[in-house]
Amino acid sequence: MSDKLNTDFKKHIVRNFNDYLEILREIKKDDENVWFRGQSNASYRLVPSAMRDVYTIKDQFDRPKKPVKLTEYNNRGDMVAYVDVAGMLEEFKKLAKPYFRIQPNNDLEWYFLAQHYGIPTTLLDWSTDPLVALFFAMPEKVNLSSDDTIKDSIEDFQENSYSDKGAAVFVINPGKMNEICTFYKVKKTDKFIDFPLDATEHYNLISTYLPGSCEQLLPCCITSTPIDKRICRQSGNFTIHGNMVWPLDHQNVTKSAIHKIFIPYQCIKEMKEILDVLDINKRSIYGDSELDAITKNISKESEKNLKLAIEELKGKYQESLVQ
């Protein structure tokens, strides 16, 4: 069944696998061209992995600020710092090249691979397969209080769109999202972009989002290329995010275009069992690759460097106050 609530998201609630299929049927009846994303906690925002630990370091007048982890979003124009995405991409390209049978044609395809092998990027994964999204919504462990009931979890979500008492699958129309987010127009026309950009056909435009030389602010929905079996297994596409660190669901205008399907944690066991019967599991979704260990080291090193840099900035800020 589907409980649609009058909130910013187009909200739905499932209590079992059949509910999930019925909601998908309802959504796709109105809109065939949709993408899906699963998150293991409904409280998580739609923000790329590289932008989850962000620190403010300067104000809009280029004056140093005491580095503080960003917890609330604003439009004051502060300068922020996060992990060195461009540096990690270059390191990944050097170390990963021998592991790929098909070599990427350009930096964008390298970026797709980096994302799918665990490097923090400004990409957010979406899938054209709702069962793949459901797999990613499944937490490895669920810690439920003995007093928690499915009714309690549903009521919590009804009151709070970012409830932590369940998982979530998000559904977007990528063309509609581009129409909302984009501030550029299709060349030589007056029409705003209302379709997902193709990674090959629109490479020159999408490349302006790449790390190190990003010229864009707002996110954009883009299709991937079948460069790797992991991307193919996950039916993967992306939103690629610009220099603005706001989550995709930060503004009401984007929230209102997003379906959020809430899955109470009490339902997870049944969902996992059915997905496993359908052979949708970690083995089929990821496969095995020695690259995973390599990318984990690259990510850890970058996170360590960010923390060191922030501590150094904090020290300099304190010195400036004394002077």
Rank of each mutant, 00 (worst) to 15 (best):
R101G: 02
E72N: 08
S302E: 05
D8Q: 13
I285R: 11
D62V: 01
R76Y: 12
A86M: 07
E311T: 10
Q318L: 10
T189R: 06
S161I: 04
D84C: 03
V171F: 11
P226Q: 06
V169T: 05
H259Q: 04
S127H: 03
E319V: 06
N178Y: 09
A96G: 01
N237V: 15
S153A: 15
E311G: 01
Y20A: 07
T200N: 13
D8N: 12
K307G: 06
L308R: 14
E215D: 11
E159P: 00
V171S: 08
Q103V: 10
E273T: 13
S43K: 10
N16C: 09
G166K: 08
Y162W: 07
V85G: 03
I172Q: 02
L144N: 06
Y20Q: 10
V80T: 13
N106H: 09
P120T: 05
Q251T: 12
F157A: 01
S207A: 15
M271T: 09
V47R: 15
I227R: 08
G118K: 02
I285F: 01
S2Y: 10
N106E: 09
N18T: 08
G287I: 08
Y99I: 00
R233I: 00
A199I: 05
L131G: 05
L113T: 00
F9C: 03
K269E: 15
S320L: 03
S146N: 11
S40Q: 14
E72K: 06
F157L: 02
E90L: 11
N173M: 07
L95W: 00
V83M: 06
R283D: 14
Y317F: 13
Y209P: 01
L131V: 01
C232S: 14
K191Y: 11
N178S: 07
K229E: 15
P196G: 04
